[in-house]
Amino acid sequence: MLSAEMLASAIRLAVPVIITAVGAIYSERSGVINIGLEGMMIAGCFTGAAVAFYAGPYAGILAAVAAGAFFALIHAVASVHFRVDQIVSGVAINILAYGVVRFSSLSIFKMATTTPHVDCLPKVTIPGLAAVPWLEPLVSKVSPLIFLAFLLIPFTAWVMNRTVFGLRLRSVGEHPLAAETLGVNVYLMKYCGVLISGALAGLSGAYLSIEHTQMYVEGMTQGLGFIALAAMIFGNWMPLGAMWAGLLFGFAQALSLRVVTEAVPYQFIKMVPYILTIVVLAGFVRRSRAPAAVGVPYERGEAA
């Protein structure tokens, strides 16, 4: 069961969850809940594929990142500046992104639900390791975004713990008033957190459409944005934790794809990630520790 192919497949399925979950950490650590990640992923998926179709995969990925960040900007303006309920704003972003993508898909490709086939980034093979038989599926012809995803983990941990930016970002999510009295620009930090989460969700979307499927298909995110949010909670708002949680989902999915038989209807196989998310949250949410001020709108000069 636990073959290298299986592991490789699990990793491929885990990557979008991991990238988005890491993005969610930036947003939540700054105190903003981002329920709109799903919509930002959808925007990334379509924009990535559409731009890649005309201008190649590199441009596609950049465009996807920009598209995710654009919707994140809307979320930031609404929830940081106007202090509207972050969940309401996130839900609106999801609806909006879905509508905009269908509208654009119809207008550009005359198809609401798919784009044409696109080229992916050149696959990477690690020369030495690829010769080892058992490792071969893991290290040969792999999407470079997979490596990027795993680099994001230590990088984010480093940013959070060792940089001025990380310290200030976390302080804003824990106690914004304390941060502001010390001269930290609370709004700026929150904007950064939300925009980074949107950019990464966009990147994750690009991975799905450009790297994984090589085309955009409507509904391809299948709630991955929410699953990523759950993975972040499961991972206790830590990048490494989010990675393990993401791998768990990838593994469960890879496993379930392999047990499709006559006995188990495919609809039930497809339910696995959703049920798993609920089970994991039910088992772990009480043990995790969220940033103290997450979800609470902050009014600048509230001290006054």
Binding site: R170, S171, E174, H175, L177, A178, A179, R289, P291, A292
Partner: peptide
């Protein structure tokens, strides 16, 4: 009322 980040 102290302005301290408890988790820090």
């Amino acid at each position: 009322h102290f302005m301290l980040v408890d988790a820090f």
